[in-house]
Design a protein around this nucleic acid. Structure first.
Length: 271
DNA sequence: CGAGCAACCTGCATGC
DNA sequence: TGCATGCAGGTTGCTC
């Protein structure tokens, strides 16, 4: 489900409803995620308040005065704010219940998500400390892309989806960004000129920003914290459009697999 | 070191 | 209708 825009939509939706609210109870209904939810989570959170909710890559960081809860939504995770009495479903793993009677509820059918606790600076956490730059920050630009990709032979699509190079570019947005930048996804990362890397970096920023502005992409089941879908999928140019005409030149869109992921491109517009 | 790939899971669409 | 297969928005950690 979530790529960076969807995680950001979730963060923006959750923040006003949970920030500063006293945590009254924590229910671990199903601890089975990528790693088991620690039973100590309740002790860590009880009586605390979230002072800020930040994002690093696709991780959500829920800060308290005592430490920080990290949540990753994996492929199918979502957060909702519900009334604490709302009946839970099969894949509802965790409820954090506030004095306001609202609950922050984590739903994750495929269980690729994670809920972790850290007492140290979260950005120094093992899973976060080696992440590449945020795509929407000034740290990420064409010069960086160019410098990091020299002598790299892997396809550019794999390269921009690697968190060490830049975070938050998942499969949909990698496909879309490369289309708009006119770059073939199979092209070796190390063979791309500085000028074209600059186009690519600014395209990635633009695509992510536009998607956030439209509430993210809903393909199957992404929804925001109120359960409403995003609208960016209406603007997808290549993703899941195999054999359909390119929006620019009408050539049928091609599909291939790169790094085990479905990849879509126009063989004429993308070189 | 880079690159490739299996694995972690469930749900859904498809085809026989 | 039932069963097998393949695929899905992500990431880690192994092997070569």
């Amino acid at each position: 489900m979530p790529e960076l825009p969807e995680v950001e939509i979730t963060r923006l939706g959750v923040t006003p409803l949970v920030k500063g609210q006293l945590i009254k109870d924590v229910l671990i209904r199903n601890k089975n995620l990528r790693w088991p939810i620690s039973s100590g989570l309740k002790k860590n959170l009880l009586g605390q308040k979230f002072s800020a909710i930040e994002r690093r890559g696709k991780y959500l960081l829920f800060y308290t005065d005592q430490g920080c809860m990290l949540i990753h939504l994996g492929m199918s995770g979502s957060l909702r704010i519900v009334d604490q009495m709302t009946i839970s479903g099969k894949h509802d793993h965790l409820d954090i219940i506030f004095a306001s009677k609202n609950a922050l509820r984590l739903h994750d059918p495929r269980r690729f998500g994670a809920v972790l606790w850290t007492n140290t600076t979260p950005l120094q956490h093992k899973l976060l400390k080696n992440l590449g730059p945020e795509p929407l920050s000034e740290d990420f630009n064409g010069a960086l892309l160019y410098q990091k990709s020299r002598k790299r032979r892997q396809p550019i699509k794999n390269f921009i989806m690697d968190n060490h190079n830049v975070v938050g570019v998942g499969n949909i947005y990698a496909n879309e960004s490369l289309f708009l930048a006119g770059i073939n996804p199979k092209r070796q990362a190390g063979n791309i000129s500085l000028q074209r890397d600059e186009v690519l970096a600014s395209t990635i920023k633009q695509v992510l920003k536009r998607s956030i502005a439209q509430g993210g992409t809903t393909l199957r089941d992404f929804s925001n914290i109120e359960g409403k879908p995003g609208y960016f999928q209406q603007q997808l140019n290549v993703y899941a459009r195999a054999s359909q005409p390119c929006v620019k030149c009408s050539t049928p869109i091609k599909e291939c697999r790169l790094g085990q992921r479905a990849s879509f491109y126009c063989p004429v517009c993308q070189r």
